[in-house]
Design a protein around this nucleic acid. Structure first.
Lengths: 237, 237
DNA sequence: AAAAAAATTTATGTCATACCAAAATAGATG
DNA sequence: CATCTATTTTGGTATGACATAAATTTTTTT
């Protein structure tokens, strides 16, 4: 680890100090960072160093920067992790195998989620799932709206374990795989198919049948993958 | 969407160009980047911009930088993603709830993994598991060696789906949760307990009993958590 | 002649200064 | 009180300089 390695990296100590102020709350969440020239004075460093520190903090997701605007403090949370990964993940998705791996991991996770749901979903979870499904049904004719409700339905599954890590993972999947899906042809017919798939999943969950739920989910996602694969003429695997 | 990305700056176009050269292989993996002044000339930018671009690439894990040394090109892979997350994840683990969430997600994943293993493990997977278990047994008296073989046993589970994402996740769990575990008291007695737990998992997998495998795994990890919780006097949850 | 040490060159980390254009702010105007 | 305008502040970039560590060359030593 490069902690305490003061040799030749003044920006890192500035990063550490700002980092500490952010997590401690001395620099409030959503508040703008002081001006660069003020930070220079505060830390006794040149603007070069201050700007490098700001750039690093931005890459780590602890501040949000827009050109010509003050950086805004962002207390790290699960979404921050996602953001930090995003830039790199993108590179792994340029190859089809990367996309496939990511998608397969999603299938794996969601299979476990629906299984869990069938075994342990509470009344409140069922209510949420049913509401999400109803939203699906009402949006069948509007493909772009259906996409939103589709994502939302799966999102409910990720929220059942009450562990904030899972909704974060869901966000990752949707944002990283979205570029593929966005190019996908959508139609009321396909929407209906997906609605019915969701319904089958919910039915199995309500019947407390983990195997059936897992199977319904698997069929749903495999079919979606097949559709994408054929649509983009990706050939066999 | 790319909040936190300093979009619209001159450095970004340099980043994009270098990024392209890295992924295309024009800049070879493990090769040093050209000198800053050479890049200035090549991209017609000031050193300020070049250095900012280098800093960004480093944060994204596409190059490795050591103070005063030439940056080294690093083609992004799954480990790169892990590295990018690491810095931020650390912040989430300062609270106990963060550690618990991460650990729970691990239990969730591994439960699904052993279930999968029980259903679909190939001969080769069983062989690997058995070898890993044997290493456990041989290391019972050497706690630090046992820790390594313990991690390795779980690692085999993550490798069964043949999806490189899972071993990466495993690395994440072990490196991020290690600071907690390192402080944990280890003893031959505890090692023996863990060895037996691993054995129970493998037995269930070999008997193709997913429920038993899941239960054995759950018991194993819950017990480990309990031990840590009590050892550190974390109180109830 | 090969290896080690010393001298020289090159390059990185940092600082200081300057300028432009965009954002923030104060001020004038309706 | 809202709106437009002038002024100030500040971020993005360029340039030059310098100390010191790394790379390279030269010299010395074995």
């Amino acid at each position: 680890m490069d902690i305490g390695n003061d040799t030749g990296r003044a920006a890192d100590s500035v990063v550490a100090m700002l980092e500490a102020k952010i997590v401690s709350g001395e620099l409030e969440n959503r508040a703008p960072l002081p001006a660069e020239r003020e930070l220079m004075e505060q830390f006794g460093a040149s603007r070069t160093v201050i700007r490098e520190a700001i750039s690093k903090l931005s890459s780590r997701g602890l501040i949000e920067t827009r050109p010509r605007f003050r950086p805004i403090v962002r207390k790290p949370d699960y979404a921050t992790v996602l953001h930090a990964c995003g830039n790199v993940v993108q590179h792994l998705l340029t190859e089809r195998s990367g996309i496939k791996n990511l998608y397969d991991s999603r299938v794996f996770i969601e299979r476990a989620l629906v299984r869990e749901a069938a075994l342990a979903a509470r009344k409140e979870d069922i209510v949420n799932l049913r509401a999400a499904l109803e939203n699906n049904r009402n949006a069948i004719s509007d493909s772009s709206e259906f996409y939103r409700t589709d994502v939302a339905f799966h999102g409910v599954l990720y929220r059942i374990p009450k562990n904030p890590i899972f909704p974060t993972i869901h966000e990752g999947y949707t944002s990283w795989l979205a570029p593929q899906w966005d190019r996908m042809l959508r139609s009321p017919e396909r929407n209906e198919v997906n609605y019915l798939a969701h319904k089958a999943i919910l039915d199995a969950i309500m019947e407390r049948d983990p195997l059936a739920a897992e199977e319904a989910l698997t069929n749903h996602l495999k079919a979606a993958w097949e559709f994408v694969r054929v649509t983009f003429d990706w050939g066999e695997e």
